[in-house]
Design a protein around this nucleic acid. Structure first.
Lengths: 161, 161
DNA sequence: GACGTATCGTAAAGCGGCTTGACGAAATCG
DNA sequence: CGATTTCGTCAAGCCGCTTTACGATACGTC
């Protein structure tokens, strides 16, 4: 007898599938909680990747674009949105007349902390179910994998040149 | 002295950040390898979530849409694309004159297997760097977390009603 | 100092991928 | 049978990002 389901089960057991599913669920839950907590909806996927690079010191939009690997225009849009909400503000870059620096406002710092607290709580709730030890295990493992994949990427880039 | 970087480092250490970063890197690497292996580019994010539900038996597009939680129209587009490449085919649903069933062609099965092999190899390469044991650990942990978040979602849905 | 070149940021248009709205065709229910 | 639901498709719209194009400032070179 043929077993047509063999393909499916092979995929379900793959590491990649578990990783992507987990990330998607976590992301959805995180956004739902953030929307609920702040009242405003975050919306853009790139925002969550951008925020970690913001601080109260200031950074150039172009530098942000370079780090998260999106176009400067996209960054500009996101920052305009954040500015409109009063979370970031622009100041002139003293060392370059063309450039501006964007930095978190007091409001922005507050929102960031709040957001971090919400995420920490989600993490806590999940940890409660799967166990703290296991959570730390997975966390450490993910960090190691991230590192490995960065190394992998660097290598393949060398071969391409 | 103020420490403006404290926000940033807190985010970098969060579980969610590690999870999302890892998933993104893995996904990018996977897509790059798949594109290279097959020649054709996969493109749509939803495709990778759709494929696990395809088999040689057949399934209704509407059912696919329900499972991956996207609109039937989106599923229709993706399937049209896959059909155009000869990877899936439509047959009439004998039990319902309105409906059709979509199933993998021989080509489709072949491509699926090939794709799975590519992903397995990526997984293998990563495992080689971080260790098989740790890989299994993380995999099991992710599965547990997925399960936990499903349970979490079910609970909150109950409260909403 | 002046000129060519590179970089900062913005504006407008385009595009991919998905959604919503609207619809005919077929099934199901009363 | 008629009313309602469900299957799938067509068309339009939207969101988030990219590409193209551009003025403005900085830098390198003579």
């Amino acid at each position: 007898m043929t077993r047509p389901a063999s393909l499916r089960s092979a995929q379900d057991r793959s590491f990649g599938h578990a990783l992507l599913t987990c990330a998607r669920l976590f992301d959805e839950a995180a956004q739902a909680r953030l929307n609920e907590a702040t009242g405003e909806r975050l919306g853009r996927p790139a925002v969550m990747r951008l925020i970690p690079y913001l601080d109260t010191v200031g950074i150039r939009p172009t530098e942000l674009a370079r780090r998260v690997d999106v176009s400067k225009q996209a960054v500009g849009q996101i920052l305009a949105d954040l500015e409109h909400r009063g979370l970031v503000e622009y100041i002139d870059d003293p060392s370059d007349g063309r450039a501006r620096l964007v930095r978190l406002t007091k409001e922005g710092v507050k929102s960031s902390r709040q957001g971090l607290a919400v995420l920490a709580e989600l993490e806590h709730v999940v940890a409660r179910r799967v166990g703290r030890k296991r959570m730390r295990e997975v966390h450490a493992g993910l960090d190691a994998i991230v590192q490995a994949m960065h190394a992998l990427r660097s290598e393949s880039e060398e071969h391409d040149e």
